[in-house]
């Protein structure tokens, strides 16, 4: 991106303007996410930086909103913080229950989406696959069809077959929503996959199963894991289907946030938001490491 030596002064000026514009756009992208982090430590119940916060006075900061995440919904939040208190948190605190639900639903949805999605991606990337394009289009469509339409359809269908208000119903729905991501990432990995490796394994006497687990699998693993991460995040972030088909027992984190945002956006919402941002950062790191590993395995130049 360095300027060529023959650049005119006008071009130079434009070049620096361009860099400033880019910096502003990056700021636009990242600032909203960063701004909520300090605000979640606000000692006051407001969404602006108090003077104490700006002066970096420790009194302006507090963990009270994080504490609220634990105490909200408890039977006896003011009891002394002993084992009974923590058991109360574990069983009754709304956000803790929501987190448990999110993890359970996310885990099973990811499992289904990843297993079925990876198998299908293996089939789809074989050159002899019939109706490849059409089938691919159908399998990707859950990502494209507006979520409100999916949720509406599921509401009627689940009511008819008795899956509404059940964990299974939400898990199946979230698995469906996560599948396109698994297909996309795994097929992308398989594009660079050398099919002659499979043939070599077969000619050396390996059964197809053994070939899959010992040759194919390790090579496409980074793609599978990043697909699984996408599927998990999709489930972890999904609120509309939960709004339409879940019962109160299946309240998830986004569902709880939805309530909180509409009723009272107290900084508690910012506290949970900050935790979610931290989780995204962790996931992103894992993904980046996987990408590097994948590039190394496939002999591409490291980034």
């Amino acid at each position: 991106m360095a300027l060529p030596i023959y650049a005119s002064p006008l071009e130079r000026a434009w070049h620096y303007t361009y860099l400033v514009i880019c910096a502003l756009i990056f700021l636009f992208l990242i600032a909203p996410i960063l701004i909520i982090i300090p605000l979640s430590f606000n000692a006051e119940a407001y969404f602006t930086f108090s003077e104490k916060m700006l002066r970096l006075d420790p009194e302006g900061y507090s963990l009270r909103w994080y504490d609220r995440l634990l105490t909200f919904g408890m039977v006896a939040p003011d009891a002394p913080r002993d084992a009974a208190w923590w058991s109360d948190v574990w069983h009754n605190a709304s956000w803790v229950r929501a987190a448990k639900n999110s993890l359970i639903i996310g885990f099973f949805a990811t499992l289904i989406a990843t297993v079925l999605g990876t198998l299908a991606a293996l089939g789809l990337s074989r050159p002899e696959m019939p109706f490849r394009r059409t089938i691919m289009a159908i399998l990707i469509s859950p990502m494209i069809v507006p979520i409100i339409i999916t949720a509406t359809g599921l509401f009627f269908f689940y009511s008819m077959v008795g899956l509404a208000h059940s964990y299974v119903g939400i898990i199946l729905a979230h698995a469906t929503l996560g599948i396109p991501f698994v297909i996309i990432t795994v097929t992308a990995t398989l594009v660079g996959f050398d099919q002659s490796l499979n043939r070599a394994a077969a000619s050396l006497g390996a059964s197809p199963t053994r070939t899959f687990f010992q040759v194919t699998m390790p090579l496409i693993m980074p793609g599978v894991i990043s697909g699984a991460l996408f599927a998990f995040v999709t489930s972890f972030d999904e609120v509309v289907v939960v709004l339409f088909v879940a019962a109160p027992e299946q309240q998830t984190i986004p569902r709880q946030m939805w309530n909180g945002i509409r009723e009272q956006i107290s900084p508690t919402i910012l506290a949970i938001a900050t935790i979610l941002v931290a989780i995204s950062v962790a996931l992103l790191t894992v993904l980046e490491l996987l990408r590097r590993r994948s590039e190394r395995l496939r002999g591409l130049s490291p980034g």
């Binding site: 079925l116 198998l119 089939g123 074989r126």
Partner: peptide, 30 residues
Amino acid sequence: QTRARRRAFLLVAPLLFFVLVTFVVPIGQM
């Protein structure tokens, strides 16, 4: 080739069935 095609299709079939049941049918019904 037929066998290879069938094998490829069989890999995709479970997911296709899954998506048809949990996605295409509900939307059609709606």
